[in-house]
Each structure stands twice: as structure tokens, then as C-alpha cells.
Design a protein around this nucleic acid. Sequence first.
DNA 1: GACCAGGCACATC
DNA 2: GATGTGCATGGT
Length: 221
Amino acid sequence: MTSEQLNEIYQRLFERFGPQHWWPGETQFEIIVGAILTQNTNWANVEKAISTLKAANLLCPRRLYEIEIEKLAELIRPAGYYNIKARRLKNFLAWLFENHDGQLNNLNEIPTDLLRRELLEIKGVGRETADSILLYALNRPVFVVDAYTARIMTRHGLIDTDADYEQIRELFQSNLDEETQLFNEYHALLVRVGKEFCKPKPKCEDCPLNRLPHTVETQYL
DNA sequence: GACCAGGCACATC
DNA sequence: GATGTGCATGGT
């Protein structure tokens, strides 16, 4: 897997789909909330929960920090796993208020690698959630790996089927220019093509990544 | 009705 | 370290 191949994949995706305008959220905090709510969950369901929070004027750190967890759980119900996700949102806010004065702006001074370690210590914030927050909410050049990324790359025979999260992230980060905008668009494009073509039971014939270098036959492994 | 969706923590071996 | 399981809603 070379830097040229990774850049070619990006070019093909961008030419086919164009800019994806990620993350679909208006504020830093909305992006963070979305990153937690979308864990193993369809984005359409997350949008319902976000709309409810927005309508209740709760999409701000202070008010979400102060609301009772039971009320929060009920409000985010459409996003699924609502009890556990309410706890995870509370865990993030506890960290923000107890360590950084409740101000997202205070995170700007922290080096990316240190901030990533801090985020990963929050119960309910794993690698993908932490990296999504870093890239899309905090504009740090961190490549986000998700289920689509891994599935696309393995199905094309471009990485080992047993490659773990950090190995896949390393592959992208070390072979691409370390630019926030490139990582942003690249991940969004992988999700875009993954939703349409790289499903568990795929219909890959018209995928723009077809024969790069895989063949249609190898996709059905 | 089965399957899937932009994960994660925890138990167990 | 690898593998299995609970968490839950809504769309196809």
C-alpha cells in the first residue's frame, strides 16, 4: 500500500462524489455530541436526537452538564443505546468542566497527542469517537478510521483483514500530507462510497474504486 | 421479521 | 491479546 495508491483512491472518490461538507453539524459542541450519539448508529436516528436537544435549547456544554441524566436519556432516545449514551455525554462534560473549565476554547492550547490521550481516558470515548472529535470539532490533523474504512480497505485487499484501528490510522496518516482538510474530506468520502457500495452484502459493480486493484469477484469474500 | 447502522466497555478465557 | 456480549432505536 503506497502513498500513490492512497492518493489515487482519494482522487477517484472526489471526482465521483465531490466535496461532502463534513461534519454535518453547526457548532463544535454539536459535532461532539453527534460523534458520541452516532456510535454504531444510523445518522438519521442521531439527527432526531440532535433536533430534540436543539429544540430544547440544550446544545450547549453548561446546560447539558446541568440537566439530569434521566432527562437527557429520554431526550436522546431515538439515537438508540440512550441510557449508555447519556452517561457517555455526561462523562465527556464532567471531563470538560472538571479539567478545562467547561470551555472548548481551552482545548486549543493542548497538543494533539496529549489531547487524544485525555479524550481516550473518558469512559465511552473510544478511538473513533476521540478522533472524530479531534478532526471534525477541533480541526486537528487526525485520520478517522471507521467500519467503512476498514471494510473498504480489506475488501479491496489493500490491508490485512486483521489490521487493527491504529494500524489503519497509521497507514493513512503516514502516507498522506498531514492536512486537516484532506483527512476531513477523505474520511467523509469513504463513508459516502461505503454507504452505497461497501455494504455487508455489497453491490460493487459500479463502485468508483472497482479494480483498484481488486476485481468484482474478490469483493464477495 | 431479519438485518443493518459513522462503537465501546466489560467479562472471560 | 483475542473473542463474545449487552446496549436500543428506526429504516429497508
